[in-house]
């Protein structure tokens, strides 16, 4: 038996389980977190502390009838939720979770298929998400859904530009698009991470903030959740979706949050490297546990932001992208280029 094949299948199953499990349990985390913020208890009936609630919700969604409203574009209507979930699962293939870090397999890297252009692939697949929004809204034959889809597309395009420019800055600093190389370049304590203004890159914090804002906007999270502005557009682009159609959109959204948090961690927070220098016993070791800790801290920040801030309007959102983030990202790129490439070239 080909060991490579076993490895592949195991990882595929693992990744799908990770994506789906995260999507399901982040809903629980979000509901519990929101409840905590709002002095409520949140889900508490199904299982201890409502832990079985996501499964119950999933079972409910799956057992519901899929309603196809009259006059919809049926093939596109059915395609859209798949576009929301499939790219999200695909992206997990290239995300390296890091070495195990302890035990007999300490150096074993947890990654399905590391690619030397991993970052490019992730960004490419992430932009498919906009298609899901557009197709879902467009094929529904619902005015609210169409408005929401248009909003979502203009938002997605606007924020993808600063996102990619900022990612280019990081690629320039580490000299590779391979995610593991980007992480390895940040090893050796938290002051080496890309968001710190050390390491010759004075613009690190700016990059980090721009990237984080774009990540919020790209995943349609509050305060940028214009596509789902329930006080304006009912449920936005998925107004007409029921059953697992809605379920896939929902899971896709949470899977995208995990991806966004992973990418932010890899690019700026040192991925699986420990915040402590390597000579510190135990805590100094690189491990996928650091990676998970960092992404869940980021996700918790995202949840906190959602339940604290009101929603921005479309115009101020687009202004933020085009007038503030893109110029900042460009200046950042130029500044980093001068600092990292041009000055050393001139021998300074």
């Amino acid at each position: 038996m080909d060991l490579n094949l076993v490895h592949m299948v195991l990882f595929l199953v693992g990744i799908i389980a990770f994506a789906a499990g995260n999507a399901a349990y982040l809903v629980w985390v979000e509901r519990k977190g929101a409840a905590r913020i709002q002095r409520r208890t949140g889900p508490c009936e199904v299982g201890p502390a409502g832990l079985i609630q996501p499964l119950a919700d999933g079972a409910k969604l799956m057992s519901k009838q899929i309603v196809f409203p009259d006059g919809i574009d049926k093939p596109l209507f059915m395609l859209a939720p798949m576009f929301a979930m499939i790219p999200a699962v695909m992206i997990f293939v290239t995300i390296p979770f890091g070495p195990v870090g302890f035990g007999p397999f300490a150096d074993f890297m947890i990654v399905a298929r590391e690619m030397n252009i991993g970052l490019l692939m992730i960004l490419a697949f992430a932009s498919v998400n906009v298609m899901a929004l557009l197709l879902g809204g467009w094929s529904s034959k619902n005015k609210y859904a169409v408005i929401s889809a248009i909003r979502g597309v203009s938002q997605g395009i606007a924020f993808e530009i600063p996102l990619v420019i900022t990612a280019i800055t990081i690629v320039m600093i580490s000299g590779s698009m391979q995610l593991s190389t980007i992480v390895e370049a940040q090893a050796g304590g938290f002051w080496n991470w890309n968001w710190m203004p050390l390491q010759g890159n004075l613009f690190g914090p700016v990059s980090f903030i721009v990237f984080f804002i774009c990540f919020l906007a790209e995943t349609n999270r509050a305060p940028f959740d214009l596509g789902e502005a329930e006080s304006e557009l009912i449920a936005g682009f998925h107004t007409e979706y029921s059953s697992m159609g809605f379920g896939l959109f929902f899971m896709g959204e949470y899977a995208n949050i995990v991806i966004g948090a992973s990418l932010t961690t890899i690019l700026f927070l040192g991925g699986w490297t420990s915040p402590f220098p390597e000579f510190v016993p135990v805590l100094g070791a690189s491990s996928f546990l650091w990676f998970l800790l960092k992404i869940y801290l980021l996700i918790w920040t995202v949840v906190l932001i959602r339940w604290t801030y009101p929603r921005v309007t479309l115009w101020s959102l687009l202004n933020l992208a085009w007038k503030i983030l893109i110029p900042f990202a460009l200046i950042n790129l130029l500044g980093s280029a001068v600092l990292i490439k041009i000055l050393p070239m001139l021998g300074l």
């Binding site: 929101a34 709002q38 959740d225 006080s231």
Partner: peptide
Amino acid sequence: FVLDLGGFTPLLYAFD
């Protein structure tokens, strides 16, 4: 009103 603007949390504090 804050709910209309997309902020959910103040509603529950005000109701409290």
